[in-house]
Amino acid sequence: MSDAAIDTLTGIGPVTQSRLADAGLRTVGELRSMGSVEAYRRLKFMLPRQVSLNALYALEAALRGCHWLDLPQDVKVALQQQARIIDEAFRRGGVARCSL
């Protein structure tokens, strides 16, 4: 696991770095271990109106070492599907912890 700060990744600016830190992610290794989709899920639930699909693209691209515009189309489609699932879960209010 890399102890390098997240801001060493291309495409991760100070706002995203701060948001990731608030979500408990401070190093490249932590982000890599969690993955872009789970990191996006955490950010989306923390800041639903401020976190968009572009954040998910940026996280994935940063982990791949490229610009988000250069992500392969099939990767973007897969990320879009994951974002829709996360958005739907947010609108439903998450999963009930127990049934009565």
Rank of each mutant, 00 (worst) to 15 (best):
I85A: 11
V15F: 02
P48Y: 02
P14K: 13
A5D: 14
L25E: 01
I86F: 05
S18A: 13
G35A: 03
A23L: 02
I6V: 15
P48N: 05
K44I: 00
Q81Y: 12
A78L: 12
F45T: 10
S18W: 01
L100D: 10
T8R: 12
S99Q: 14
D70N: 13
Q17C: 04
R41K: 10
L59W: 05
C98W: 08
E60L: 00
K76Q: 14
C98E: 12
M1N: 07
G24D: 01
L20S: 08
R42S: 00
E38T: 08
R97V: 12
V15C: 02
A96I: 02
D70G: 04
H67F: 03
D87L: 05
D7N: 11
E38Q: 07
Q17V: 03
V37N: 02
D7Y: 13
D70C: 04
L25S: 01
E38Y: 01
A83G: 13
S18E: 14
A83K: 13
S99C: 10
T27R: 00
V75I: 15
E88T: 09
S33P: 00
L20A: 05
Y57P: 04
V77K: 11
D74Y: 10
D74R: 15
L56M: 14
C66T: 15
M1I: 09
I6W: 11
